[in-house]
Amino acid sequence: MRIYATLVYLFLYLPIGIIALFSFSAGRSASQMQGVSVVWYGKALSNPFVIDALKTSASVALTSAVLASVFGTMAALALTGMKGRLRVLFDAMVYIAIMIPGIVIGIATLIALVTVFDSVNPWLEPLTGYRLSMGFASLTAAHVLFTMSLVIVIVRARIEAMDRSLIEASSDLGASPLATFWQVTLPLLFPAILAGFLLAFTFSFDDFIIAFFVAGSETTLPIYIFSSIRRGVTPEINAIGTMVMATSLLLLVLAQTMLRRAGTSKQ
């Protein structure tokens, strides 16, 4: 039993480990370890395409994670204790947004936005000299759809597990609802919101398939990696991949710590 478990953990971590190991190779060969160096990290970080893609990915992830945490938290607060048709509708939306495959979300967003842009641009362009096209905004908006739903689920779980008596005590002691919110509710929810934010950032930063459809002329890091792999395996991709993994791992550890602090950490 224990041997079996060890084997499964090896299966889970060996492939990642090999990528990380080869990223420190000094040679040009992507499949043989030739000395130890960080030369490929230097190469990757001085490659303007990589830096551009990294900047795009980071700013899309940051923007979408901020929007997702704010809008998701607002919605989670509103949905608490709510009944009726609107509640059912929102629950359905959250569920559908999480369950529909990313590829279908990507396709649907692409054709819907292109259709809208094509009908708006003919009168928008002469008027303002500006035309709408797929890019940063469409990608960010598409990521917010999924990550906002994730935040709603996480924050709502926290609200449900929260000690109501604190809020009641606050209003019994004469605090206004707004003061109660800022001084009691929000601090209690904060770890869950932050965990949601970090998971949203990680999702957006790692997403390939939605970006593949809706990124327009923008190149995110996963898109760059995907097209590089098509051209062949190099130690440079190993270095980039290792950095991406390390970033996600760091954010995950942070998110996990936050969830634990929030006391909702079962998963």
Binding site: P15, I19, T202, I225, I237
Partner: peptide, 18 residues
């Protein structure tokens, strides 16, 4: 659970190697 939250792109890439 950790590998699930890291890039599936890079994890699949590792298997191209292997």
């Amino acid at each position: 659970i950790v590998p699930f939250w890291t890039s599936i792109l890079i994890r699949s890439y590792a298997w191209i190697y292997l």
